[in-house]
Design a protein around this nucleic acid. Structure first.
Length: 255
DNA sequence: ATGGCCTTTATCAAAGGA
């Protein structure tokens, strides 16, 4: 089973690139973040024509998540239970016994901002929810835009980013706390080139100079990680005209 | 040198992203 994630930074703009990527890579499931499209405007027909069944939870201008599956997902959930949040950042559904949890973690803006407080509270609520979700679904994949670079090797310039949002100690600890639930960072199950990233700033020729960060992740429950046979970052879409600033990550497991 | 770029909207300026 191949499961992928991609922060598309506007599905309206990126739809042709998404359809092209689906045709080439044929994932069983693709999770999208920052769709920025209200549900009534979701491109359902185009996705179905491409051979995928969508579930989506969107809002205007900001945020928005979707899951595209070759088969129909069951038991969809569109929010963290018991966590009041007008922002559409979570979507979960089950595909062939595998619970897929698509997340768009708040950016946080800066460690001093109220948005950072919201980010940390959001991550705590996610953690609490996943404890229960993992009991119910031993085969679980948690993936999306985490807006956290977990280790120094995930940042092009760790000294520059030390203590900054995306790489601050509280955020990295929150990421570690997710792993302690019994989740594994699938990308690190395999060898990869140094300086492998999933996001590059549009400014400063960030992509060309590889000034990036690895902030999009696919975490697997132990039961799935045991059968994981690959995890790759696909940099190709970042070379497109009008690219998203993020690029897809895809995992492959036999369970 | 704290800008740079991209997307969106109550647009032609500002907010948010990361």
């Amino acid at each position: 089973m191949r499961v992928a994630t991609w922060n598309v930074n506007s599905l309206k703009v990126r739809l042709p690139q998404v359809l092209n990527w689906l045709a080439i890579n044929q994932p069983d499931v693709l999770c999208l973040q920052e769709t920025k499209v209200q549900d009534e405007n979701f491109p359902v027909a185009e996705i179905i024509d491409a051979g995928y069944q969508p579930v989506y939870s969107g809002q205007k201008t900001y945020n928005g998540v979707a899951i595209l599956g070759k088969k129909t997902g069951s038991n969809p959930v569109v929010a963290i239970p018991d966590f009041v949040d007008p922002q559409k950042r979570v979507l979960a559904a089950t595909y062939g016994g595998v619970r897929v949890v698509c997340i768009y973690v708040p950016n946080g803006q800066s460690v001093e901002s109220e948005k950072f407080q919201y980010k940390m509270e959001w991550l705590a609520a996610l953690n609490k929810w996943l404890q229960a979700e993992l009991i119910q679904y031993p085969k679980l994949v948690l993936l999306g835009d985490f807006n956290i670079a977990p280790e120094e090797r995930d940042v092009h310039d760790p000294e520059l980013w030390e203590g900054k949002v995306l790489f601050s100690d509280p955020e990295r600890e929150a990421f570690m706390t997710l792993l302690k639930l019994g989740l594994v960072d699938s990308f690190r199950l395999f060898d990869h080139p140094d300086k492998s990233y999933t996001w590059w700033d549009y400014r400063m020729l960030g992509f060309r100079r590889n000034l990036g960060m690895r902030i999009d992740h696919i975490l697997l429950s132990n039961e799935l990680s045991n059968s994981c046979i690959g995890c790759v970052i696909d940099k190709e879409p970042r070379k497109n005209e009008r690219p998203s600033d993020h690029t897809p990550v895809m995992v492959n497991f036999t369970a």
